[in-house]
């Protein structure tokens, strides 16, 4: 069986292959180490029990939703405390509570956000502590 318009058809298939396998050849198959999050700030090392506001898996997946709730609680309802699932009460403050421990935005926040391509709008209002000092 003859392949009609052989040149055009093969060119089309080659273009399709190049486009469809883009992720395979773009990185040249080099293994990329997952981001290394630094949890060794002085504030965290001073903690007796190394625990975030909620559990680590919950925070990893839901921190952005928690922060939205916090923002609405403070800005719209004037509520300044948050009771975690385990009963601990935290002060609602990005700069005070979150960044109090995670004072290393570049080695903590940015590592994951750059890796997953998430660009949060936190810093269009909030100050970045490292940059002020």
């Amino acid at each position: 069986m003859k392949l009609y318009n052989r040149g055009m058809v093969i060119a089309g298939i080659v273009v399709f292959l190049i486009v469809a396998t883009f992720p395979l050849w773009y990185g040249r198959g080099k293994a990329v180490p997952p981001p290394d999050l630094k949890l060794d700030t002085p504030a965290i090392q001073g903690l007796k029990e190394k625990l975030c506001v909620e559990t680590a898996p919950y925070m990893r997946a839901n921190h952005m939703k928690l922060l939205t709730v916090w923002r609405d609680d403070v800005v719209r309802k004037g509520k300044r405390t948050y009771t975690a699932m385990d009963g601990r009460v935290h002060q609602i403050s990005l700069t005070g509570t979150c960044l109090g421990c995670h004072s290393n935005k570049k080695q903590f926040c940015d590592r994951c956000h750059d890796y997953s391509g998430a660009k949060p709008a936190c810093w269009s209002c909030h100050i970045i502590p490292e940059e002020v000092r």
Binding site: G29, V32, A61, N62, K65, A118
Partner: peptide, 25 residues
């Protein structure tokens, strides 16, 4: 129901570098 993007990207990069690892959670 937010997925953990760190795991998702690790998995996807594992596929394209031919070193896939099934993530947990």
């Amino acid at each position: 129901f937010p997925a953990d993007l760190l795991h998702v990207k690790n998995l996807a990069l594992g596929w394209v570098t031919f070193a896939p690892a099934a993530p947990k959670g």
